[in-house]
Simulated scan of single mutants.
Amino acid sequence: MALSRVCWARAALWGSAVPPGLYVVRRLQFVRSGLTWGAPRSSKLHLSPKADVKSLISYVVTKTKVINGKYHRFLGRHFPRFYVLYTIFMKGLQMLWADGKKARRIKTNMWKHNIKFHQLPYREMEHLRQFRRDVTKCLFLGILSIPPFANYLVFLLMYLFPRQLLIRHFWTPKQQIDFLDIYHALRKQSHPEILCYLEKVVPLISDAGLQWHMTELCTKMQRGTHPAVHDILALRECFANHPLGMDQLRALQMKALCRAMLLTPYLPSVLLRHRLKTHTTVIHQLDKALAKLGVGQLTAQEVKSACYLRGLNSTHIAEERCRTWLGEWLQISCSLKETELSLLLHNVVLLSINYVGSRR
């Protein structure tokens, strides 16, 4: 009776019109169910901390892509010229990063299986060679950026001198063609000087037959005739020893050959000779790997790049003619010994100077 009065008083205070008996029954039922079955479970699902982190990261990435897309559209509408440069720069960074990852995989594979550079397949050898040159050029920019606030000056220099300071990944398609033409024009300036040295050494050749072959070759070059493979291979003995062996080349000859190979000539004679030997040896190793692969397995871009590396301005020559020229080069290169690599070095001029379509 006392309990019912208390419940009635609570109901009066809460403004409820529920009779006290019914409240007591429901209260007892609730207590009974709580004692028997425990507290009711919540129907709301809770994600694990890992799932929460993943969903947060996914959300951030999605929003970042949306904002980045809006930013690109804004630049494209209001600053079209800057947007072109920005796009090329970002794509260049992505390609350079991809090249670095690939070079790292190749190096790791070499270390695991104890493979030397000359034992690699052609494409991996060429990738490592080109990546080293690109990294060397990028390191120069990094050194320039070390002083405080020098990075702003570096960006200005990159914009003003893209050919000298940037690698091919950051060039526009038009710049790639123009810059390759400029580089070829620079190395072409050394061709007459190299041919002049070949004429001067004719009296120094002891063998009369070799003297005649050298004179005939120089005459053909001056007349604009493209030499045959056997005409060049007939002189291999002259380039193995005195006077045209790698160790017998004079300083002025080496400087001219460095310009023909797009190497810096402003070094002491000892370093010039070492660089020429190293560079020619790498090309010889690439030629052997390419001969195993076959010229027919290369893409059009790979063929043109291989020809340009070996002295031919392939940017304005048809693909089939480039393949023919590259086949002639491989025929000469694979016939030479290590002591005759000076002929391969001079072959950059001999085989390319009068080739059809290369006079630009």
Rank of each mutant, 00 (worst) to 15 (best):
R32A: 11
M90G: 13
F89H: 14
L210R: 11
E340W: 03
A228W: 02
K101L: 08
G327E: 11
F79N: 13
I194E: 03
H274L: 10
T315R: 09
V229L: 06
M90Y: 12
F131I: 05
A208C: 13
L293A: 03
W329K: 02
R132T: 14
L271E: 07
K116C: 10
G245A: 02
R359Q: 13
R105W: 10
L298G: 00
R163A: 12
L156A: 14
K112Q: 13
L204N: 08
V154N: 01
M110V: 10
R81D: 11
S206T: 03
L28W: 06
W111D: 12
M261E: 15
L286D: 05
T280Y: 05
L263N: 00
L244F: 07
I146L: 08
D52L: 12
R133V: 14
A12H: 10
F131R: 04
H113P: 03
Y266R: 14
H78Y: 07
G245K: 10
E126P: 08
Q164S: 02
L257G: 00
L45Y: 01
S33I: 05
R41F: 14
S335A: 15
A9Q: 15
D181T: 07
L257M: 12
M110N: 00
S190T: 06
K44G: 10
L262V: 03
Q297A: 08
L93Q: 05
